[in-house]
Simulated scan of single mutants.
Amino acid sequence: MKLKNLIIPFMSLFLIVVSSSEGFSQNQFKALVFSKTKGFRHQSIPDGVVALKKLARDNAFQIYTTEDEDFITDKNLASFDVIILMSTTGTIFNSEQKKSIEKFVQSGKGIVGIHSATDTEYEWGWYTKLIGAQFLNHPHQQTLKLNVVDRNHPATYHLPEKWVWSDEIYAFKNFNENVNVLITADENTYDAKEGMGEFHPIAWTHEYDGGRIFYTALGHTDWAFQDDNFMKHILGGIWWAAKGYPVE
Rank of each mutant, 00 (worst) to 15 (best):
L144Q: 00
N188I: 01
R57D: 13
F93A: 13
P201T: 09
V105T: 06
H115K: 10
G48S: 10
S87N: 14
E96R: 13
G90H: 05
A241Y: 02
G48P: 03
H220F: 02
I202N: 08
K243M: 15
F24C: 07
F199M: 01
Y64G: 01
H200S: 13
I84N: 03
G197P: 12
L235K: 14
K98F: 00
N178T: 10
L235C: 05
I101D: 02
L77I: 04
Q141M: 03
Q142C: 02
A51E: 02
D74P: 08
P46D: 09
M196L: 12
N76P: 07
R212L: 08
W239E: 09
E161M: 10
S87R: 03
Q106G: 08
H153D: 13
Y208K: 04
F172T: 02
T221P: 00
A171F: 05
T65A: 15
E67Q: 15
G236W: 03
T184L: 11
Q142P: 00
I131K: 10
T37N: 13
N174A: 11
L3I: 15
G110S: 07
G210Q: 12
P246R: 09
K2Q: 08
F172H: 14
T65S: 14
F10Q: 06
A203D: 11
S35A: 15
L146R: 00
K36Q: 11
I202S: 07
K99N: 12
T184E: 14
Q62C: 01
H200Q: 07
H220M: 10
K193F: 02
A241G: 02
E161L: 08
G125E: 10
D68C: 05
F230C: 06
R212T: 04
T189Y: 01
F34E: 06
P46S: 08
G125P: 00
G244T: 08
L146C: 13
D209S: 15
L3F: 05
I111M: 08
H115E: 05
P139V: 12
D68M: 07
E248A: 14
I83C: 10
F172A: 06
K38E: 14
Y127F: 15
Y245N: 13
N147R: 09
H153Y: 08
Q134K: 09
S87F: 06
A56S: 15
L13R: 03
Y64Q: 03
E121I: 04
L55D: 07
W126A: 06
H158G: 11
N94F: 09
V247P: 00
Q97C: 12
Y190D: 07
